[in-house]
């Protein structure tokens, strides 16, 4: 056993040197896509399709490496020097942060690709226990006594910020634009939250596997995936009367692709996301395609139609983030003791 470990160890050393020596030579055909948590399954499929597409088009072999994590944490890693060729994050706000703090992405990045650089969208829905025992139909039911709501922490999760904003938008409409009432609603909502996980995936696990809570606020794609992977017979989706159009955005990291000389292939990768082929994969993975005509109609049928507000109704991320989520924002205010 000891000998085997030594052999492994030797192998490890060689691998290390191989890694160090091999990295620059491989750079022109390896891309790094730094993404957020729920896109793992999506990009596994997209990357395979892109590799074939690129091979057919140019004859070059390209490997796309993936890095997944909380959207904000991933943005910070890129700011701190992670060599991402492209970023595909949960919020435009996180890409703005990279642009602002590292200057590796120009400030007008969103205008460089169609649909505000969002090749797919999603929305926020409710996941409830099978048969909906608490009779949860809409946002108003979430603040009732004895209803436990599971949602991640907006401080650490991008998806949780969409959850928060969707709830706010509903309350604002319900109370004819009275912001004080909307804030009271949000405060009551978060009073019913027993666990604030750090990420969307953690919340899904808490809800489905640990059996905590009556309703999970989730990305639509996460809700579908959770039913597929974890519990077709234990949970079901409830569509609220109003939700938000969540736009996960993508961007080329100019500072890195220029240093690594991968601009052409990285740009092609992002443009590939808008092709019919990729849009089909996107719909299959429960994201709403921006080009629905390219998707399989069977996949499209799964998406319920509902009224959606957008981030622009909040004045864009540049306004929404400091107001609601940064230090001292609405989310901090509702947790102040004595409120």
């Amino acid at each position: 056993m000891l000998r085997r470990r030594q052999v492994l160890a030797l192998g490890a050393f060689l691998a290390l040197f191989g890694l160090a020596a091999g990295a620059p030579a491989l750079a022109d055909t390896t891309l790094l896509n730094v993404s957020y948590d729920p896109t793992r399954e999506l990009y596994k499929d997209v990357n395979a399709a892109f590799a074939t597409y690129w091979k057919n088009k140019t004859g070059e072999t390209v490997t796309v490496k993936q890095s997944h994590g909380g959207s904000g944490a991933q943005a910070r890693a890129v700011i701190d020097g992670l060599d991402a060729d492209v970023v595909t994050l949960a919020l435009a706000g996180d890409i703005d942060a990279i642009a602002k703090n590292s200057k590796k992405i120009p400030a007008d990045w969103a205008a460089r690709l169609p649909h505000n650089s969002a090749p797919y969208t999603s929305t926020i829905v409710f996941l409830v226990r099978k048969g909906n025992p608490k009779g949860i139909k809409d946002w108003g039911d979430l603040v009732k006594d004895g209803v436990q709501v599971i949602t991640p922490n907006p401080k650490t999760s991008g998806g949780a910020q969409w959850n928060f904003l969707a709830g706010w938008a509903w309350a604002l409409k319900q109370h004819n634009g009275d912001e004080a009432k909307a804030q009271a609603y949000i405060a009551a909502l978060y009073k019913n939250v027993p666990v604030l996980d750090t990420g969307a995936r953690g919340s899904t696990t808490t809800f489905v596997q640990r059996g905590i809570g009556d309703v999970l606020l989730a990305w639509e794609n996460e809700a579908f995936l959770a039913i597929d992977e974890l519990g077709p017979n234990t949970v079901e989706i409830v569509v609220p009367s109003l939700s938000i159009k969540a736009e996960p955005s993508v961007a080329l990291v100019d500072g890195n692709v220029d240093a690594k000389k991968t601009r052409a292939v990285a740009q092609a990768y992002l443009e590939f996301l808008y092709t019919d082929e990729a849009q089909k994969i996107i719909a299959k993975n429960y994201y709403r395609p921006t080009k629905p005509e390219a998707a399989d109609p069977k996949d499209l049928k799964r998406f319920p139609s509902l009224t959606l507000v957008t981030i622009d109704d909040f004045g864009g991320w540049a306004k929404a983030q400091p107001r609601f989520f940064l230090d001292g924002g609405v989310f901090d205010q509702i947790y102040k003791p004595g409120k």
Partner: peptide
């Protein structure tokens, strides 16, 4: 971690 997430 929360403060880092706020880029603070």
């Amino acid at each position: 971690v929360i403060r880092l997430q706020e880029f603070n």
